[in-house]
Design a protein around this nucleic acid. Structure first.
Lengths: 345, 345
DNA sequence: GTCCAGATTGCAAACGTTTGTTGCTACGAG
DNA sequence: CTCGTAGCAACAAACGTTTGCAATCTGGAC
């Protein structure tokens, strides 16, 4: 009775116990090849495998089949609350398919991205989900990535060389602008995100479109560009807007962190939100509904973006020459209390 | 000139180009065995490897060396802001050592944990960092994990069978209690976390110790237990406290989410924080400094906990029979505006 | 009775490394 | 001049799978 399965059971062990050749055991164990083997042999093999608590050696299988059942996920920073839901979406979709994700944080460092992708290639990932794209992103065309399935998420490149899943940033910004216009605002400022990112650029475009199509002017004096999505930048940009001579009654920030910075600036200048200035953010980060005032913002379907990206990637892995598709998800305006009609002068 | 490195270069290709045997190339490429080969041979091999853009096949190496250079990380939910810093701490420590982390979310489902660990074992992880431990956690003693290096992080088990890294929860709670006592509070209520988790239990113990050692009574009427760390539970527990006939002037919640729920309860009952009730949380989640009122809380060194856990795990992987150590990190009281002296009646 | 098709299974070669062992060369000591 | 030895490189055998091909067997049609 001395069970001693301390060493991991090998396929040969299973085969021997079932009284067959390893090749037969292999065929019996794999769904796809199972029809090739006789029913009672299948039963014997399965039983032996269970008895020995057999689990196939992943490395050996990878080596033989050239498939790692692993995909890479490259994000700027998991600590940024935008990304955890995306990562979960990816993993939850991947898991049932037997895939597993290698997640790497690269900050905003392109060199680091290069290193990380090499490392992933060394581990033979079958594809990569990339959340670090810039609008112009030559990295993707460098040789090491040649032919590797890639799906962009959240941020996209200008040229649609790769499949992507993103939120309709222009639409989101237009929704926000429309909301402010509805409330009666006309002088609406915009703290734009980096032009190099599709999110920054798209939201700015949406803002401009929204204003223009309503026949409201959006002069340069109402526009200020943030260098990054950091709270500090929001503070700086809002302060700059307030310092300009151009009056406004509302601010649309390109994301919630910028909005939080702007809120702090308003506060320190002795202004109240929303009474003096309405404020709209972007992303609907956790807890922005609990700050003062609860932030009106644009909600992005992040989890769906993640799982959709994973779906696209698996499609592409299974069918290398499939179509390149750019999925646009719809954002949603969430009205809270950081916006109200402008106070009449 | 027709460079055609489309197929991944193999070690043999490198060897051939350098005019040596694959074995020699292997030795030249690996730090540890490099001294065995002649200097100019090393140079030739290195050069050939660079020319061909050679990257060793991970699966083949794993198969041969029986080492996957991969560790598993099991957490309840990456979407919970407590965990991203921990995961980063782990990954940042692992990366320089050439290791990579497989991260899995299991929710609060023990069966899922089992499945996930099996999957990890199938991929031959060399160790596991576990953030899902309960105080009584038989799963760890089941055969599949036999002998696999495991390090617990954040939550620990009662019996110190495995190395662990956690914050000193008792100390944290005592700091919070001391702070409230300093302010003059005497009737301090506690919304405790689940007793099944070391965090819930430890913080409750710390609360009781803190009260007792100051000679202040902590009757059962001031204690209420949450079933989970959900905001909703905080709301329920605070409402229950308010409904009881036992007066109090401050609440120590076992974490920030519970505190947020409590805050909502106070609000809905028409009480103000901190004027009517002081409130202390635990964790210092992002943005709790921006809510109203900014939350006084206990900050945990999460990133350090992660990297420390990774360090312990690597130690153990390299030296299987090393000592079992339980690292306790020091929490820190962060005073904000949700606490103030009790208002005299 | 012969032959063929179909159903099962076994055989053996790969996949790309690492590493124990052996073989070669040259050099210094005796 | 011989021998031992050090330094270096090659050989070959693994690691645990999968899979094309060949081999065996069965039963049925002619």
């Amino acid at each position: 009775m001395a069970e001693e399965p301390s060493e991991r059971a090998t396929l040969w062990a299973v085969a021997r116990r079932a009284g067959v050749h390893a090749a037969t055991a292999s065929r019996a164990l794999n769904e796809a090849t199972r029809p090739l083997v006789a029913p009672d042999t299948i039963a014997r093999v399965l039983r032996a495998a269970r008895d020995l608590n057999y689990h196939p050696n992943h490395a050996a299988r990878s080596l033989r089949t050239q498939r790692s059942m692993t995909i890479g996920v490259v994000i700027p920073d998991i600590t940024n609350s935008l990304f955890p839901p995306i990562v979960r979406g990816i993993e939850d979709f991947l898991a049932p398919a037997g895939y597993v994700a290698l997640v790497a944080n690269t900050g905003r460092d392109v060199d680091r991205e290069r290193v990380v992708m090499r490392e992933m290639l060394a581990r033979s990932v079958e594809g990569i989900v990339l959340a670090t794209a810039r609008r112009d992103y030559p990295l993707l065309e460098e040789p090491p990535l040649r032919g590797l399935p890639v799906v962009l998420v959240n941020r996209v490149t200008d040229d649609a060389l790769f499949s992507s899943v993103s939120t309709d940033d222009r639409l989101g910004a237009r929704l926000a602008v429309a909301h402010l216009l509805d409330l009666g605002h006309r002088r609406i400022a915009h703290i734009a995100g980096p032009d190099s990112l599709s999110t920054g650029f798209g939201r700015k475009s949406g803002y401009l479109e929204g204003m223009r199509s309503a026949g409201v002017s959006a002069p340069a004096s109402l526009l200020v560009a943030a260098d990054s999505y950091a709270e500090e930048e929001g503070y700086r940009c809002a302060s700059e807007l307030l310092g300009r001579r151009s009056p406004f009654t509302a601010i649309l920030a390109a994301n919630d962190m910028l909005a939080l910075g702007a809120l702090r600036a308003l506060d320190e200048h002795g202004f109240r939100c929303p009474e003096d200035y309405s404020l709209v953010g972007f992303n609907d980060m956790p807890l922005v509904d609990r700050i003062t005032p609860p932030l009106t913002t644009i909600r992005l379907p992040q989890y769906e973006a993640g799982s959709e990206a994973a779906r696209l990637l698996l499609d592409r892995i299974r069918q290398r020459d499939g179509p390149v598709s750019a999925v646009l998800l719809a954002p949603k305006l969430v009205v809270r209390r950081s916006t109200c009609p402008p106070t009449p002068v």
